[in-house]
């Protein structure tokens, strides 16, 4: 059994409410998994502490119209990347911060805050990134229905 398959089987054994088809090994060293929001932190905790995914490569946020999906790209020193996906509500999206696990997550979370309007609970006050200070409130450019013409209005 490959290391990827072993990680998958151990995860499924530990979290019985995650269906087998929600964890996909796309190719060598690439695992994608959709987990429910309720299980997200216990799965993350398990992947970091038991499976040693100690590096956060980045967090991707995307607007899928009916929901906002966050993808946590967790890297292992063997080169395996676990792409942990979680869906949150599109209206007033809120997620808890992961900076307690990965201090480097701060900048990735701030980026998602600006570009998609997701609020991260527990993230300390700090400078915004990457939009300018005078950017109008409530405008999040990576939302699919965002209208860039707002920038032309004076």
């Amino acid at each position: 059994m490959s290391v990827e398959e072993k990680i998958k089987q151990e995860l499924l054994a530990k979290f019985t409410n995650i269906a087998a088809d929600q964890v996909r090994i796309q190719r060598a060293r690439r695992i994608f998994a959709d987990v429910p929001l309720d299980d997200f932190f216990s799965v993350l905790d398990y992947l970091i502490k038991q499976q040693k995914f100690t590096q956060l490569s980045a967090i991707t946020g995307m607007d899928e119209m009916d929901k906002i999906t966050l993808v946590y790209h967790l890297a292992h020193e063997t080169g395996i990347v676990f792409n942990l996906k979680v869906a949150i509500a599109r209206l007033n999206p809120v997620m808890k911060t992961v900076i307690a696990y990965y201090p480097s997550a701060e900048i990735y979370e701030r980026e998602i805050m600006d570009l998609l309007g997701v609020q991260f609970e527990g993230l300390p006050e700090g400078r915004r990134y990457p939009l300018p200070d005078e950017w109008p409130a409530g405008q999040h450019p990576l939302l699919k229905d965002w209208d860039p013409s707002i920038l032309d209005k004076k």
Partner: peptide
């Protein structure tokens, strides 16, 4: 203090 994003060009969008 590090402030990033001055020249964010919206390439992903």
């Amino acid at each position: 203090e590090i402030k990033l994003g001055y020249n964010h060009r919206g390439l992903e969008k």
